[in-house]
């Protein structure tokens, strides 16, 4: 990374330069074929609109090893949601591919769950909390006793075992998002995608939910991809942070978060290492916002 302005940074930059169909650009951490659970290769998305083509994502390449909690952070409008939709099979990429456990993703995969930002719009308002959590299992044809057990466990895991008879809209925002997380947990996915899940809840609830995600991740051994625009959140939660450039998006940097495994809202956040990492990510995001691109892709437009 000759163009990196961050030579004093303590962070190991895993981003390597690679020759892609879009030029010589940095890519995220990749693993040898067959080792990654989720792999994104040269993903590109161009929206065709009446006003012309909009290139939301230029070229993204990275791998998620099994069992890791990776945070994706980028400036607003950096195509985070587009990327997530492509990974979850809701959106067909213009070029490139997404593979989950070796299989090409062409539609929503069976072993993947998504938690959206808009909790108020992702829960079924005509169903009670329990029914909301149970529905995906019911539709999948799981027998009643088994799914009942899974639903109970999931509700307990998110601390909602006392409100199964409530409707989602009777709950606070934070609790609604817990229901959405419980639904994802009960679904027993291998990969859990979270699209800015806590952007719309208040700061205190947010801290609780962050710890909840860490706990659920450890308990279930699920692989999590957590998309956020909040720098502190990405450093606090992740074992790795992928920083995206501004749109058209490429991987700006892929860094390892070498904080202790046990994280604590007070201790971790006030540690020197946290401050360093946060500082680094913040700087990178500022650079991204100003339009700095660690590649020659800019010239290629």
């Amino acid at each position: 990374m000759t163009t990196s302005p961050e030579e004093h940074t303590p962070v190991i930059n895993q981003g390597t330069m690679a020759d892609t169909p879009d030029g010589h650009i940095p890519v995220g951490h990749t693993l040898p074929e067959g080792e990654a659970l989720l792999s994104v290769r040269n993903l590109k998305k161009i929206y065709h609109t009446d006003g012309g083509d909009i290139e939301a994502v230029r070229n993204l390449t990275f791998d998620l090893p099994k069992g890791e909690l990776t945070c994706l952070v980028g400036p607003s409008g950096s195509g985070k949601t587009t990327l997530l939709k492509a990974i979850s099979g809701l959106l067909e990429p213009t070029a490139g591919e997404v593979k989950l456990a070796g299989n090409l993703v062409t539609g929503p995969p069976k072993n993947m769950a998504v938690v959206f930002q808009e909790y108020g719009r992702s829960l079924y308002p005509w169903m009670r909390v329990r029914e909301n959590v149970e529905l995906p299992l019911k539709v999948a044809g799981m027998d009643k006793a088994k799914r009942s057990q899974l639903v109970d466990d999931a509700l307990e895991a998110v601390g909602l075992d006392h409100v199964p008879r409530s409707y989602p809209w009777q709950l606070s925002g934070g609790m609604q998002q817990r229901v959405a997380i419980a639904r994802a947990v009960a679904y027993q996915p291998e990969v859990l995608l979270m699209d800015e899940p806590f952007a719309a809840v208040d700061a205190q609830t947010r801290a609780d939910l962050e710890d909840l995600v860490r706990r659920v991740w450890k308990q279930l051994g699920v692989t999590v991809l957590f998309v956020t625009h909040d720098i502190d959140e990405s450093v606090y939660l992740g074992s790795r942070v992928v920083i995206l450039s501004s749109s058209p998006t490429i991987v700006q940097q892929d860094i390892k978060i070498d904080l202790p495994d046990e994280r604590d809202q007070l201790e971790t956040r006030s540690s020197a290492r946290f401050a360093e990492l946060r500082h680094h990510v913040y700087e990178q995001i500022q650079l991204a916002k100003q339009g700095f691109r660690p590649d020659a892709a800019k010239a290629q437009v």
């Binding site: 809701l90 719009r121 529905l135």
Partner: peptide
């Protein structure tokens, strides 16, 4: 609602369901 529709897609709720 688009989010609700996306949610249902990701949980593979399709067809009659």
């Amino acid at each position: 609602d688009e989010v609700l529709s996306d949610t249902s897609h990701t949980y593979r709720i399709s067809g009659v369901a």
